[in-house]
């Protein structure tokens, strides 16, 4: 293991999962800081801040949402939550508490590693990057212009704002409430239907035919701009 391998805090009360994850993440080039309880996790993170955290939602002395909220108070590190519950509400709570993404147990380790790397890339990228160009789509956030396959696309102000928020947070799962709050304002966080409508219009303008490629739906939770 290289001495500058990114340190990942892994919080799970299942010792066996911890043991196996340690090997998997080490082989993917990370150094694991294991913790079995919420308080141990917060202690370890405070002593020597990790570059990212993977937090199980079910912990003996609290829950992962609480850990996420505490970490977010002082750190912008990417946080992935592990959920065994299959419960959308809990995922949403974790994302609203500041988690970047979630992975459902049982997960494939390749998926977990990919999500972790994506989150780390995003964190290292910095937020000011005015132009995004991915496979046939070009978004200039400063000039507020969008081109698809070189052709200019006309977006309404709301559609552009939606796209801007998604692109700025690309790779990150944005909950319905987060999108509504950013684009429409905090008083509209419960109006999911208009959000769906605008997402549909935005997709019609920028997505290729068929399955959406850029704006991916996470049913019951939100949307993410994938790249």
């Amino acid at each position: 293991m290289s001495p500058d391998a990114p340190r990942i805090l892994v919080v799970d009360d299942e010792r066996q999962i911890l043991r196996a994850l340690k090997v998997v993440l080490r082989e993917a080039g990370f150094e694991v800081v294991p913790a079995e309880t919420a308080s141990e996790a917060l202690d370890r993170a405070a002593v020597r801040p990790p570059q990212a955290a993977i937090v199980d939602l079910v912990l003996p002395d609290g829950d992962g949402v609480e850990v996420t909220r505490e970490l977010r108070k002082w750190s912008e590190m990417p946080i992935l939550v592990l959920s065994a519950v299959g419960d959308e509400d809990q995922k949403v709570r974790a994302l609203e508490a500041g988690a970047d993404d979630y992975v459902t147990k049982p997960f494939g380790t390749r998926e977990l590693v990919a999500r972790l790397q994506a989150a780390l890339r995003r964190a290292g990228r910095g937020s000011e990057e005015p132009v995004l160009a991915v496979e046939g789509l070009e978004v200039d956030l400063a000039a507020r212009t969008v081109r698809r396959d070189g052709e200019p696309v006309h977006l309404t102000p709301i559609e552009f704002d939606l796209l801007r928020v998604l692109v700025r947070n690309r790779g990150r799962l944005m909950t319905h409430r987060a999108l509504l709050s950013e684009v429409w304002g905090p008083e509209y966080v419960d109006d999911i239907q208009p959000l769906r409508t605008h997402i549909a219009r935005l997709r019609a303008k920028i997505e290729p035919e068929g399955r959406p490629r850029y704006i991916v739906t996470d049913p019951g939770v939100g949307y993410r701009f994938s790249f």
Binding site: L21, V23, A84, K105, F107, G108, T109, R110
Partner: peptide, 10 residues
């Protein structure tokens, strides 16, 4: 299952 799958992959 998660523990088994992760250990298996490891």
């Amino acid at each position: 299952l998660t523990a088994i799958a992760t250990a298996g992959e490891a």
